[in-house]
């Protein structure tokens, strides 16, 4: 009969860790793909943006406003970035409840026979004793997997670097 210690050693912890690792890697890949797809949508979606409003105060004190023509800009361009997530922690908890029982059962069967006749007498006693030892084992186990995700900065190359080349003549 396996001991309680052996039962604990038999828990397939390496396999559980491996499967958890593979699961986390697969989930991480899906999260990254989702973030990249979000980045594409942000780059493809443009909104009209009014970059400046001119406030004019007339001589008589009246105030008027004039909006600059709206400029179509992508959401990525104005700084709306996809959020990237990363698994920061993964924990496996295994709880086992092992109960072993031993019972011993003894059966005694006694039978007697006697016979008398013609000056003859015979008697016999037969005894059967059987021992039966039973082992019982109950194992209850629960496992708990906990993962923690945290947002991380997007890859530095995801946003294009804005370089401005202004070829207009500079005012003197």
């Amino acid at each position: 009969m396996a001991s309680v210690g052996q039962e604990l050693l038999d828990v397939p912890l390496p396999e559980m860790v491996m499967k958890l690792g593979l699961g986390v890697a697969e989930a991480q890949r899906s999260l990254d793909e989702n973030s990249v797809e979000t980045a594409k949508m942000l780059a493809e979606t443009t909104v009209p943006l009014v970059l400046s409003i001119t406030q004019t105060i007339a001589e008589n004190g009246t105030v008027s406003y004039q909006n600059q023509d709206p400029v179509p800009v992508s959401l990525l361009q104005i700084g709306l970035m996809p959020t990237f997530y990363q698994f920061a922690e993964a924990t496996i908890e295994v709880t086992m409840d092992i109960k072993t029982t031993t019972s011993r059962e003894t059966n005694v069967k006694v039978s007697a026979k006697a016979k008398v006749g013609f000056s003859m007498f015979s008697a016999s006693v037969k005894t059967d004793v059987s021992h039966n030892r039973k082992f019982g084992k109950e194992v209850h186990g629960t496992s708990r997997l906990v993962t923690r995700m945290v947002p991380v900065p997007p890859p530095p190359r995801i946003e294009p670097v804005l370089n401005t080349v202004d070829n207009r003549p500079q005012p003197e």
Binding site: M41, L80, P82, T83
Partner: peptide
């Protein structure tokens, strides 16, 4: 699609 986003204020 439901994708997490945030505003990069510096950008």
């Amino acid at each position: 699609k439901v994708g997490g986003v945030h505003l990069d204020v510096e950008r």
